[in-house]
Design a protein around this nucleic acid. Structure first.
Lengths: 194, 194
DNA sequence: TTCGAATGATACAAATATGTCTTATATAAG
DNA sequence: CTTATATAAGACATATTTGTATCATTCGAA
């Protein structure tokens, strides 16, 4: 019953289980949001009881994953240089930052309806608004055609991020080219004329 | 125990339940492939027992839905005039035919991994090959840029069909404009230059 | 109205998922 | 070596889902 005093005596030695569980859960739940905790534990290579020791219940696990996904995607976008770049260069940088996080992004997309009111749902809505602001910028910029609905442009950005991640995962597209392919598709499409 | 003899005596009066169940199941399962049969029955406005009377089990329901989705999407594409049209006109026609069936298409996409070896899985793979052939045609045609990977083009067609259906469902885009918006996005992207 | 099939409601059993708990084991720090 | 902690394994209770069966009701056809 004595206080832990973990700072002075025992620095948090290491916890491979927790990150292993979160990593595995992102992969499994992105493919099937209703996967059982036993499946997740197996994918993480840990016992089911260990999972319950780290996360009191299913919702706590979902919450932890969502927070991490928000954090990672936020950090990836925050690191992009914003000033002295054209909006198209910025868009390419967003694709380059987000495509490797496609599973995180997709996880948020499929989980967002289930956590609409929560803090995580708010964070996801904020990310959507940031993409929307980027599209407004591109429209003022003259880059985005004025007759394209903003909502459609936002939707296409989302779709392209996930499509590019899928293509890389399946081996159809080299990781190095995925982002530029997505950006090119957004800006000028796939026809010869461009 | 006497044979039914349904042809001479009673022409199949009508079956609203079966189609109601299938329609509701497509909508529910497209959003959550693991939705319970109770949820589907409720969405269809029928009792749970009625659902089991029409479909012996969950897999039979999935199978029936998959067959219908394949049938509907096949029929929609078959009705497109193939000759004397350019490949871009054909692509637009495909979008116009498929966008209203976006829920069917998405259902097949999310269900395909689970039925990979079956007849339905084969039919879905065949549909993918047909899109691939269309892309090859567009490449020979000179419409599709030669440096675009065919797999990426196929993936983008799929993504755009689902994105357009989503946008119509959410009210972001008018049903009349969704297909042309998707086609324009594929061919020339969303930037001003085109 | 009368008859028969379809239906809704309900009860029930089996299977699966969730969440709690205990015990034995391995491992790292002291 | 000794001790504390994390873990794997599994027992256990509960809830949900699946699938089966029964019964009263409804609705269309004769």
């Amino acid at each position: 019953m004595q206080p832990r005093d973990s700072q002075t005596l025992s620095p948090p030695r290491r916890r491979p289980s927790r990150v292993a569980i979160i990593d595995a859960a992102i992969g499994v739940l992105a493919g099937n949001p209703d996967a059982s905790l036993a499946t997740i534990a197996e994918a993480a290579g840990v016992g089911r009881a260990t999972l319950y020791r780290h996360f009191p219940g299913r919702s706590d696990l979902i919450d932890a994953i969502s927070r991490q996904a928000i954090e990672e995607t936020d950090a990836a976008v925050r690191n992009i240089r914003w000033d002295n770049t054209s909006s198209s260069e910025f868009l390419l940088a967003v694709f380059e930052a987000m495509v490797p996080l496609g599973d995180r992004y997709h996880f948020l997309m499929v989980m967002a309806p289930a956590v609409a009111g929560s803090e995580v749902g708010e964070a996801y809505a904020r990310q959507l608004r940031e993409v929307e602001e980027m599209m407004h910028w591109m429209r003022r910029d003259g880059t985005l055609a004025p007759d394209v609905p903003i909502d459609w442009a936002v939707l296409i950005v989302d779709s392209l991020i996930y499509a590019a991640w899928t293509a890389v995962r399946d081996g159809s597209v080299a990781p190095r080219h995925a982002a530029s392919l997505a950006c090119r598709t957004f800006l000028s499409g796939l026809s010869r004329g461009g």
